[in-house]
Structures are given as C-alpha cells and as structure tokens.
Nucleic acid binder design. Sequence first.
DNA 1: GCGAGGTTGTTCTATATTGGAACACGCCGT
DNA 2: ACGGCGTGTTCCAATATAGAACAACCTCGC
Lengths: 234, 234
Amino acid sequence: MPDAGPPPSQTLSRGIRILEVLADARAPLTIDDVAGLLGVHRSSAYRLLRTLEHHGLVVRDANGGVTLGARMAALAAGVAHDLQAEALPELTAVANELGMTCFLAVLDHDECVTLVSVEPRHAVAPVAQRPGTRHPVTVGAPGKAILTLLPHAQWPADAPEPLRATVAEAAQRGFATSHDEVIPSLESVAVPLALRGRGPAAIAVVHVASPADHEQIAARLTASASAVREALGG
Amino acid sequence: MPDAGPPPSQTLSRGIRILEVLADARAPLTIDDVAGLLGVHRSSAYRLLRTLEHHGLVVRDANGGVTLGARMAALAAGVAHDLQAEALPELTAVANELGMTCFLAVLDHDECVTLVSVEPRHAVAPVAQRPGTRHPVTVGAPGKAILTLLPHAQWPADAPEPLRATVAEAAQRGFATSHDEVIPSLESVAVPLALRGRGPAAIAVVHVASPADHEQIAARLTASASAVREALGG
DNA sequence: GCGAGGTTGTTCTATATTGGAACACGCCGT
DNA sequence: ACGGCGTGTTCCAATATAGAACAACCTCGC
C-alpha cells in the first residue's frame, strides 16, 4: 500500500489543478488569475495552459480568457461508460414510470457524484440533477445507499455516529431515503448497486416532498438495479 | 499568434494522453498497457498515474486495473456550465413538446460534441444522444448548423465541396437537416446558436425517419435558441 | 497623437524534476 | 517449485522545468 504522499509529478499536478480551478470558475479567467490561484509564476501557468489548449481541454476566447474546452466533456463520457450505457435505458424507464427524476450515482473518495440523470415529462415540479453534481456521501439517499455497501471501516472520518443506525436500517430494508438533506423540500429514495470489480453505486429518484409509497418506489428501483447488474455480469 | 508547435509541457501532455487513452479503453488497463500505448517507460507512466489518482481522475481497482475516476465527470460539469444551465430547461421543453430527443452541441476544433441532451417520454423510438458524443462538424444537422456560423476560411480542410452549397442553403433557411448521416435511419433538425464571446453552438433534435414538418420544428428550436441567447446576454 | 497601465508572449539559466534501467516483492497458473 | 507477469522502489544522469527579466501588444485615457 503506497502511502499518500505529495503528488509524484509536480507539473502534471499543477496542470490538473488548473482544470479544477477552471471548472469552479464562473467566468473566463486570465492567465494571471490562474497563476495567482495556483501560486505559481505566470510563466509556468502560461506553458501549462498552452499544453492544455493543445489537447483541447482548455479554450481561449478572443480576449485571451481561459475556459474549459468541450473536449473535457468528451473525456468524461468515457467514465464507466459501460455502466452508463447499461443504466441509461433503465433510468429512463424508471423516470417515466414514476414521473420522477432518476439518476445514477457513484462513490468518489468520500463524495457521491451523479453520473447520468434522466428527467421525466410528467414531473410535478421539474427537478434537475445535473451529471457531475457532488456532495458528501454521508448526505442524501444515494449516499446512504452507497454507505450500505461499505464496511464501516471505510466510512469517511467525519461521519456522524447517528448515521450508523440509519444506514444499518437502510441496509436491512434494501433502500435509503432522505428529505430536505441535499436540497430543501426534496425527497429522495435510493437503492444500492454493487458491481463486480467496480466501486459502489446507487440508483435513485428525487421528487418534491409529498406522500409517496417509498416501498413501492424502492421495489421498482431494485428491479432496475438487478437488470443493470446482470447486464454487466457483476 | 503563437504557432502550434509541440506541446510546451511534455509531462502534462503525457498525463493528458493517459486520460485520453483511458477514455477510449473499454476495460481497465494495466500500467504496462498504458506505458505501451504512450510509448514511455513503465516507471514514468507509474508516476503519472499516481498523480492522476491523487487528484481522483484515475481509479485503481483491487487488481491494479486503471480506469477513469468519477471526478472526471465532476470536472466536465464545469464546461460552459452557464450555457448548460440556461439551455437545459429549454431542451427539456422542446423534447417534451416535440416528442424527440433534443440536445445542445458545440464546436471543438473540427468536431461537433454534444454537451447536454434530454430524452422525451413519448418518443416513437427512444433515441439516446449521450453527452460527450463526438463526430466531425461536416456531418449531421448540428454540424452543418455550426458551419453556418463559421467563415468558410475556418472550415476544416477536409470539408467536401458539395457541403458548401448545403450549408449556404441552411444559412438562408436558418436551420439544417440531415438523415442517415451520423446514424442510419435517423433524421435530425438543427438551428445555429451564436453566443457573444463563445464558440458556435447548435440546438438540435433527432428522431426516427418519418414525415415531419421541418419548418415547424426549426421554428420551435429557433425560439429556444433565442431564449438561451437572451438569457446569456449574447 | 501619445503615453500609462495591464496583459500576453519570449528568452535565459540554475535547479529541481523527470526519464529510464535495474532490482525486490507478491501473485497466479502450469 | 518454478517462471511469467504485474506492481512498487531505488538510483543516477539527462533534461525539462521554474522563475525572472525583458519585449511586444493591446486598450483606455488624456
């Protein structure tokens, strides 16, 4: 088990930090901005940006403003693309049958990030769950469903103790729920999705808070989870 | 105008090539595979991978297999996120009103990549247009709509001459169409979307080939395009 | 028109980083 | 046990990089 020391390659690490900074930025940044945010000399940032631009991950507008390039999206499409491909039709079916936004989330370190999401037509209120959305695993139904699959030893250090009982209960029932956790006035139901040789995942729906049969929703989600699991042989 | 010589930063460039290779890979790769594909020494690939892993862009399974990490998806969510945010509701509305998959595509070098896509419930046949999908700009309705916005001098060198007339016609009509181009038996209608200080884009729908009023579809798309354009002040 | 401020692009050298090879370890199938 | 295959580590020379100082280019203001 190699220890988690400093990033072995300084240059690459800085280049990636540029991407991270740009992803958070709301507007095009100047080279100076980037250099400042990274704490490196402007000249270094310049060379790194040129390289990123060369690969299409960064784009410069007429004023020299720096932005993330569209090819980032193309790269991200390769993330677990077999899982995405198998899950998409299932998510669509669930979304339409239940009339709720349905999405697939996976574990990333101690965060829960949604990979694909499908919005139904007949939503009471449209709920958008954009791919790439992140929040701590310890929060929300998908997070708890994922924790269901993790031995307690691998839980994030900052997990509050009460959570343990909640997750244990979810594990028994086979699904997790939440309301007003990640977004106020929204309820969510999620089932765990364990795949061979892959990190833990979850299939979930969100809807505006209202009386709903969680058991029934969970049953539908579980069916889709099984379908995906079988399709991927895991 | 700085010339497009070799990538200024060799290390960063290699790191990105690793990401590209992994995005194309259908299965987890070994370090040796990566090193071989890049043409670098295994030890170098090792260090680069460690750095990528440190940033969560790469994940290693129990067998040491290397895959793209979920955080890539989070990074990609930052690509033109204001455009994505403004376009999403419009795409959803169009998809539901027309009963066709509706998506937003942008220009990346000489390729057309789709950023967001929304699938409707009542599709005759479900058509999935996954975000991140790429193909040459010279092909398909969105591509031609985008070419509408580009001076001919900036067209890709390999653009066939007949295309010029087609695009000119599309520019006059205000929309472009295609059938059986990128995927057999599919038709597509697209309108250009020019935004201030941003690359050319297009809003498009796809549907299975059948009699349809392209003019009417285009009118609806144009309305959404205008809405997005005004929302972004461009 | 002209100069000031701010930004990008270029060139240079000492230094830290990297590239590559050889080696140690663990695992699995024959 | 053995040999193949894979990872992780160490080493040194070679080189790519970091950082600074400088030049060119804008726009904005007068």
